[in-house]
Amino acid sequence: MSVTGEPSEAPPVLSIEGLRTHFETDRGNVRSVDGVDLSIRRGETLAIVGESGSGKSVTSLSIMRLIGQPGRIAGGSMIFAGDGGALDLATATETQMRRLWGNQIGMIFQEPMTSLNPVQRAGDQIAEAIMLHQNKGRAAAREAAVAMLRRVGIPAPERRARDYPHQMSGGMRQRVMIAMALCCRPKLLIADEPTTALDVTIQAQILKLMKELQEEIGMAVLFITHDLAVVAEVADKVAVMYAGRIVESGDVDTVFAHPRHPYTKALLESVPRPGHGMIDEKGRRRLHAIQGTVPNLLRLPPGCSFAPRCGYAIEACRAGVPSLMPTDSEAHRARCIRWEVV
């Protein structure tokens, strides 16, 4: 949620323009991210929502510069307004990135077990980050690590700091990840499906914790998820991705109440919830299903990528890729030439 008193036109913490991330494979050039524009301000939560292959995770990995071979950032800029001045993450050196990782940019991933060091005690991992970035001695860093573990709701943090990750439950490990990501009070937190592997009651705990810490620190949060209900719960703004491009963006309230892209509309309608769906001839409630499947990025249809699955598609949709155009307002955009009839 936005921090009160913050002018809404403050310069963005992160401003992405025309990001393209491609993977050179044996079977061709996969354009996983194909011209993404995003900006996110202090205290704001922006959710990127999409299905598998939409490019949402590749976008987040691109921001962190964690794209490995055969992938590469093929174009665009990602201006991060850090403490040391503005820096284009698209062209930053590894040394420059190292100074940001875990310091001004925090990261949380879906499966904490793979992102925590399995042979290092939880408290030491956090203390290391603090020593590295905050110029503290070992004892002071240890103390700060325990305080951070307490802050993220780990019971008996002095004892738990000496545990290894495998001795903890999934929810506990995710708390350790959050403690590590936030110990240096980052300006930007990138959370890639942080609660997808967790049960709903634990998910509720983690989302609540993230929200509290965001209000405390005032950081911007980029939240990557496939779950529309989680978007409704945590985000101020949303960008819906499909086949490597943003197809709709705007305030969550506006986009969810009046989606202007057929894909967003169909996704929202396919979620089962009481009083929604259609009634068939036998009187049963039916879900609105989207026909077909997510396209293969190597064989994208001509024009709008969603056209083959879209009930609104006309001949013109196959003629060219539509731009992400303003709809009811400048801020609510959709990549659809027929947005007015959606």
Binding site: M172, L207, L228, F256
Partner: peptide
């Protein structure tokens, strides 16, 4: 109550369970 909901107004009446299974 813990299940996330598309209804933005429902978020405020959430009862969050403490602890783990």
């Amino acid at each position: 109550s813990a299940a996330p909901s598309l209804d933005r107004n429902a978020a405020h009446e959430k009862q969050v369970l403490e602890g783990e299974v």
